[in-house]
Amino acid sequence: MKKSPNIFKPAGSPHKSWLPFIPAAAILLIWQLLNISGIIPPYMLPGPLQVLAAFAGDFQLLMRHLLYTLLEALSGLAIAVTAAFVLAIIMDANRFIKQSVTPILLLTQTMPVIAVAPLLILWMGYGIAPKIMLVFLTCFFPVTIGLLGAFASADNDALRMLQSMGAKKRQLYFYIKIPQGLPAFFSGLKIAGSYSIIGAVIAEWLGGDAGLGVYMIRVRRSYSFDKMFAVIILVSALSLLLIKLVSLIEKAAMPYRKGITENHG
């Protein structure tokens, strides 16, 4: 039989991190060729080089907007993580509260964020507050659910062992439940991290005078498609960067994980 292409990598073959760059380069090349050939008019679909030029031209402006968006995203995320920890611990420690609050928590997640955003602007004005609020609303849920699940599945034998040593409830969280919950917490945080940027941008669409979302609206109104592409790519790069940052913090926070995954993975 003919040797099949390398879609299904044989188990154990080294991970080649440069592989995804081949199709990416191909796409960019085709995109640029389409642009040069004139099949699609350049004002509708600018070529990659044009996008790059737009990015370079507006670089300082973009960075200023980026910092503002990043500030909103990180503030919202920080508040969401703190609140998630507090609520998850309260819910885990008290079965009555857990049973009564869980349905409400789930219900809030069915509400579309985009629909809530205009209300927030109406209530809180055009400043930074409604943006942070929206980021908080989008990030709070994945982190809380992750933590709740982790607390509930803490090792019972380990908990009993600590109790037999006379541990107080606070100590059970400190020594067992929180450290055992860290992997789930970080999975939730990665999702929340990318949500936070998107949440901030959506909030900015609806009004304000700074941020990548505001920039997006402005360039769209002036039909600068090249700048539009530049900012879209910047937003996704920012999300990726944030996820990467969470991964780095995760590795630093859990040095023992390396060995565990090596031994069992």
Binding site: L162, M165, G166, Y175, P179, Q180, Y256, I260
Partner: peptide, 19 residues
């Protein structure tokens, strides 16, 4: 029941910390 996220020494001192 050694806690995977604590070093051996930090596992061993748990009863003392709890006290």
């Amino acid at each position: 029941l050694l806690l995977e996220y604590r070093t051996v020494l930090d596992n061993v001192i748990l009863p003392l910390l709890i006290r």
